[in-house]
Amino acid sequence: MNFEMITDTASLQRVCQLASNHQAVMLDTEFVRTRTLYPKLGLVQLYDGEHLSLIDPIEIDDLTPLWDLLSNPSVTKVLHACSEDLEVFQHYSGLMPTPMVDTQVMAAFLGHGLSTGFASLVEEYLDVTLDKGEARTDWCARPLTPRQMEYAAADVFYLYPLYQLLAEKLAETPWQSAMAEECVSICRKRAKQPDPEKAYLDIKNAWQLRPAQLAVLKKLAKWRLKEAQRRDLALNFVVKELNIWKVARYQIRSLRKMEEEGFDRFEMDRHGKRLISMALEADKMSEEHFPEPISRLVDMPGYKQVVKVVKEQVNAVSEELGFVPEFIGSKKQINQAIKWVWVQDKSPEKRPDLLNGWRGELMADKVLPLLEPK
């Protein structure tokens, strides 16, 4: 397994130009994220079947050649379990790999579990046991050790033959276009940025709050997200989620009350007065500007029975096709379908996964009649 460490833009331009002559390239990233909101990119691995490059984004000031390759429509970018890698690319370049294929998705269309790991597939298909000892290493520290570099190189070196084998097997099925559609959908979802105005909806137990309390939570959650983005700090390192919920729920309007409720001293010193000020502002808001109460599907009449019968349909189709049920309809996707009919009035722009695309072709006729009010 030969590889080249790329530490300057000229070398990066050269290897990306070589890669652009191939139909498909293997990609992976190594990053660190402990207290930050965004991942800190430490390494990018690139393999075109001939040249294996370890690209050092810490040493290279201009990664434009790599971003150009990412958006080259004639070169398929192959990744495994791509979700976090896509987040890295989106943050650093504003781009998604196009076109992109995820070997984990390919494996799912061949009957593997939805979250089958790379090492498991390599062992099954290539009879190679990978060393995962460097998985938790600090990829932003320099210099990288030979073992770190070999570990990183292996992730794309073995991805190449794995991709070829999976592609051959997938070609024997009717699922090639569905696989491509699924990968496009993954990229589209990962490209969406969080809406600060809706950040309060992601707070645990927000549904327990009345509209006036939700107005407070909405203001605090919006500020917390923007502060996290501004400082590149993980949300709970700005202010703990539970604490902004407490401010809204228990009408905390003093530092003394914060202390009684167990707020961290650092949070109080840095943000206590600001949180109180924002809560007091929200208190002055007129009722017509309050958020709507949050209704939960689980509290609606007939919800559990509908979930049960929809799952039965999903399980039946999955068994017939040899897929794991979660791949066709996860709990989240089933809930999205119910919400679409019961709450969203079948809004065309919000059509859910279970009733759309390749899943819709399999499931819509079976599931939609089950969701209509009796």
Rank of each mutant, 00 (worst) to 15 (best):
P73R: 01
Y92P: 01
I55T: 09
L209K: 08
V216S: 05
R256N: 13
L41S: 12
C82Y: 00
G360H: 03
G357P: 06
M106N: 11
R351N: 07
R33K: 04
Y160S: 10
L159G: 09
A191K: 15
L354N: 06
P146V: 02
F327I: 00
D345M: 02
D299Q: 08
I328T: 05
Q176L: 13
N72Y: 04
L18H: 01
C187H: 11
R190S: 12
L280W: 14
Y151C: 06
L126I: 02
G272T: 07
R231L: 00
F263S: 00
E123I: 11
L362K: 01
T9V: 11
A178T: 05
S347M: 05
K240Q: 08
D62E: 07
A279V: 12
M100H: 05
E287G: 04
W67I: 01
K346L: 06
R296Q: 04
E319H: 15
G272D: 12
A167D: 14
E134W: 07
C16M: 06
L46N: 08
L54W: 03
V128I: 15
E326G: 07
H91T: 12
S277L: 13
K40V: 04
I186M: 15
E241G: 02
V317H: 00
K132G: 02
N2L: 04
V306D: 05
E172H: 10
K218G: 11
M106S: 10
P39I: 10
G94D: 14
Y250K: 13
E261T: 00
R249I: 05
R265Q: 10
D365F: 04
P146S: 08
A81C: 01
L27A: 03
S53L: 09
I328G: 03
V128E: 13
M179H: 15
R33P: 10
K350Q: 12
H289L: 15
Y303G: 03
A171I: 02
N243Q: 12
Q333C: 10
L214Y: 10
T34R: 02
L166V: 15
Q251L: 09
P373A: 00
Q148M: 02
G42C: 07
L126V: 03
E312M: 14
P301W: 00
L255Y: 12
M5R: 13
F118H: 15
M278T: 11
F266K: 13
I276C: 13
R147F: 03
E227V: 04
K308N: 11
A10G: 05
K219M: 10
P39M: 10
A279F: 14
R265N: 10
L126D: 14
E326V: 03
T9I: 08
L214C: 01
L355W: 00
E181G: 00
K246A: 05
P348V: 01
D264P: 04
A234C: 11
L242A: 06
V341Y: 13
L321Q: 14
A152G: 10
E292W: 07
A167H: 13
G360W: 00
F290Y: 08
L79N: 00
E50I: 14
R274L: 15
R136H: 05
L355C: 02
P196T: 11
I58M: 06
G329T: 00
A282N: 10
R265K: 12
A119M: 10
K273R: 15
L110W: 13
V78G: 02
C140D: 05
L321R: 14
S185A: 14
R147C: 08
E87K: 09
L275N: 08
R296Y: 07
L233Q: 07
L225K: 04
D345I: 02
